[in-house]
Design a protein around this nucleic acid. Sequence first.
DNA 1: CGGAATCCTTTCCGATACTG
DNA 2: CAGTATCGGAAAGGATTCCG
Lengths: 134, 134
Amino acid sequence: MATMTAAQRRERARHAYNAYVAECPSRQVLDAISDKWVTLVLTALADGPLRYGELAPRIAGVSQKMLTQTLRRLERDGLLTRTITPTVPVRVDYELTALGETILPVVVAIKQWSEAHITEIHAARDTYDERAGD
Amino acid sequence: MATMTAAQRRERARHAYNAYVAECPSRQVLDAISDKWVTLVLTALADGPLRYGELAPRIAGVSQKMLTQTLRRLERDGLLTRTITPTVPVRVDYELTALGETILPVVVAIKQWSEAHITEIHAARDTYDERAGD
DNA sequence: CGGAATCCTTTCCGATACTG
DNA sequence: CAGTATCGGAAAGGATTCCG
């Protein structure tokens, strides 16, 4: 009777967590945008549509896999559109939707806060690490 | 001569990436707050200091490990303080610093956007998934 | 009470190779 | 050009146990 107890409890916990997530909008969106690449893609598209090949170099450090994955997720969530022009070679443009543009102020707010307080954070880290070094 | 080529390139890539991150404040902060638990802890502490035991149940789904890890990181970044009262049993309080409070508006903005647009996101997902089902 | 340490599973993600 | 498919290492994170 004790068999699978751990797994069972894990399952129940998973369901409880999912249920919680399901009823909490901000948690869901948080999961969606709490992603490094998501915010970077959104800001990259802020000035207008870009092709895949233009997008990639503007987001230093992103792999092709992560970029594609991020773009697909954002398309699914209705934050951007993916337009294929069947020329040879093919051309694909990504553009923010109206919904996608409404989130830009939030992303900008994050960026502004970052630039305004990064020095304080660095100072705090130095102090903290110094104490640990004693 | 070809040995370790992949690993070497990976190392170089890692350094290039880190260098980029090092000179971009918003990227650094983004890494710091692009974390589900970070924002949740910050909002939980918005109304005043809380003990560890009070904090945990307010953030459903968080494990003790993740909560502690998140709190340590936020303490290191100077966003909150950790106060130990050496009674028996010990009592630990967490409280936002002045710096920590300055980020609350940003977190609130995220929350408000989420609640305002979650319906549209759900609709977009349904449409997208429906097309995929054809 | 508020953790730290360990184990172990799951998920992430980069690298590589191939395609319309 | 703009992807898809697959694999393997690295990292995240949950469960459990032990400690001041």
